[in-house]
Design a protein around this nucleic acid. Structure first.
Lengths: 368, 368
DNA sequence: CTGAAAGCGCTTACAG
DNA sequence: CTGAAAGCGCTTACAG
């Protein structure tokens, strides 16, 4: 074992080495060590070498807390998701992780565990950790009190030089500063419905989705708009909301079949719901797409794996996550901290396009 | 607008309020404010009220960095995953999030983005953030250099009062301190293989899985052990390793069919691979389970959703995540910081059971 | 029950 | 190119 090796082990045995330890070993001041570590200041080559050697010998790793306290940003971005097991969220998070890694940031990920109203608690925890920015992933809770609390939080964060970024939901109402990256949700549903109508379907069952969230509101709106554009009325019996889940899709399709509800196609609120519908249809002896056409929404992996594979609305989920990080850590500070809180309501609002992916689950409406 | 409301807005406009601000407003010392906030010390009811009012008025949120620096633990647990989009990982992470929330912790989640050797970099980032513990999720890279670096890191962390927890992989070799929660991986594969053998299958294709990782090593070992126990030889042609992926499962099954490889059952390295095999079998005109039986591994949601549904090995993924957090933040410090680095090699090592879930993809081997 | 003060481990003007 | 010193926002003995 080398002398250096032994000393490193000793340092290890005593706990974490500090800047001070490194400075002493290299016989320089802590200021100098800090400078070589941050590499943003001229240091004599000779000195630099000594410091680097000491750093290695002691196995020194900077304390991010001390660094953050001393004024440098935390290099941490906060993320709030509902359920990480839901591919809609995990694909977005994947994009966030990729872009965060590229920007040298690490992610603090909080989950509401499916209880959306806990969003504010999680934001508070993330804010406590002084995340540079907090990204809220997924649809917005349709609750005025909740939204106004969110707006309050956004203001406080802006004033403190941090920011709130919305990902997969529309920007906050006017006076609150926030950035947002969204997708043309309503338009996606409009296209999907119109695709079915173009195939001759007139009685289309809208199935699934939780009405408490903006995602659902916009999808249903697109479904209705498609009818309106063709001068058709929506039969209220054909709009069955509830949950975004495979189980819900299965049960309600089975019930519709049992009730002999008249429909030739299903627009599901998301792919999981559509997969459930597919299974209920099969169990009920209906052929897809011969007897019934089915369209999903999201284009998560399962959509390509069902039998038949699902025609669905593609959302660039990963890209949306990446864009959110760009908005979050974006154009580096101009130095005027908290400054943009005065710039007006919104700090950039992106809308990504969606498009229909045609696969095997849709076909012309059966004749007769 | 109340007077208090106005002041709160003013404070907000000036950036984050500090303990000092609260103290001034409540006309007490910062020590007192700290005490009422932490509630671990007697404070006069009257004083407490004044402080609480000031906190609310200023919208004060503690700075976790300052708190951590001043000696309190960071209440942050680090997590390293490969691909968060893979349900194997996201289910474990879900369990981690649940338990972490219950313990009042927040998770810093780093991803290697599928490049396992980057694990060490991520650990370093997490260590920099002074995570209380770092949980490594998923199989271990079978690489001695990597393992010994990991051991070095584990020692350094232990000395610094933090710890490394392994989740879904075996404990580190002897002299490195670490806690681990694993599952009886080899046994699961043994059972699955034996189930097929019990149904009369003798030529079982082992399909998929990346040989560079402990997960695969143990599953293949279980497959071999099952043969050994029955005094059967493993035909090397029947062991097709490569990747854990649906695509790999599809392609290699299609190829096996094209090559007229002789087999009546498939043990897939995981459910995704099995789902790909199922599709190739269907595309190749084989009926499952009549012509070929298929068994998956993991029991992630997709296993219950394929047609037919997959017989597979269930791993208590969520529970494994929860257990990892318990090991991570576990029995609160006895105060002897870094002490357990001397206690021996391992800090508790749990092994959770797996079991076979019988669904529709397995049946007796076809006669003849 | 309350306060003054030291200290956690960094960074960064300010001098030299 | 280098160092002494202040300061970031907390917590916690130590006094009272």
């Amino acid at each position: 074992m080398t002398k250096e090796g032994r000393t490193a082990d000793m340092a290890v045995a005593e706990g974490r080495a500090t800047l001070q330890d490194v400075a002493e070993r290299a016989r320089v001041s802590t200021a100098t060590v800090s400078r070589v570590l941050n590499g943003n200041y001229p240091v004599a080559a000779e000195t630099r070498k000594r410091v680097e050697k000491a750093v290695r010998a002691l196995g020194y790793v900077a304390n991010a807390h001390a660094r953050a306290l001393a004024g440098v940003t935390s290099r941490t971005v906060g993320v709030v998701v509902s359920e990480i097991v839901d591919p809609f969220f995990s694909l977005i998070v994947h994009g966030i992780q990729r872009e965060a890694a590229a920007a040298g940031r690490i992610c603090l990920i909080g989950s509401t565990l499916g209880e959306e109203h806990r969003e504010l608690e999680i934001i508070e925890l993330l804010y406590e950790q002084r995340a540079e920015a907090v990204i809220l992933v997924g649809g917005a809770l349709l609750d005025e009190r909740h939204q106004s609390k969110l707006a309050g939080r956004a203001k406080a964060m802006a004033a403190a030089g941090s920011k709130l970024v919305l990902c997969g939901r529309p920007p906050l109402a006017a006076p609150a500063p926030s950035a947002a990256v969204h997708y043309d949700n309503e338009h996606g549903a409009l296209n999907a419905t119109d695709h079915l109508m173009g195939l001759g379907h007139r009685r289309i069952l809208y199935l699934g989705g939780w009405p408490g969230i903006s995602t659902q509101r916009d999808r249903v709106a697109g479904y209705r708009l498609a009818h309106e554009r063709r001068g058709l009325k929506v039969d209220p019996e054909l709009v069955v909301e509830g949950e975004f889940s495979r189980r819900f899709g299965y049960e309600r399709t089975a019930r519709a079949l049992a009730d002999a509800l008249d429909f030739t196609a299903i627009l599901a609120a998301n792919d999981a719901t559509a997969a459930g519908a597919l299974q209920a249809l099969r169990d009920g002896g209906r052929r897809v797409p011969d007897d019934v056409s089915v369209v999903g929404y999201d284009d998560v992996p399962v959509a390509a794996e069902t039998v038949p594979a699902l025609t669905t609305v593609h959302i660039p989920l990963q890209e949306m996550g990446r864009a959110a990080v760009r908005l979050a850590v974006g154009p580096q500070d101009t130095g005027r901290k908290g400054d943009w809180s005065d710039d007006g309501p919104s700090q950039g609002s992106l809308v990504l396009g969606t498009h229909l992916v045609l696969r095997g689950s849709t076909a012309p409406a059966p004749v007769g």
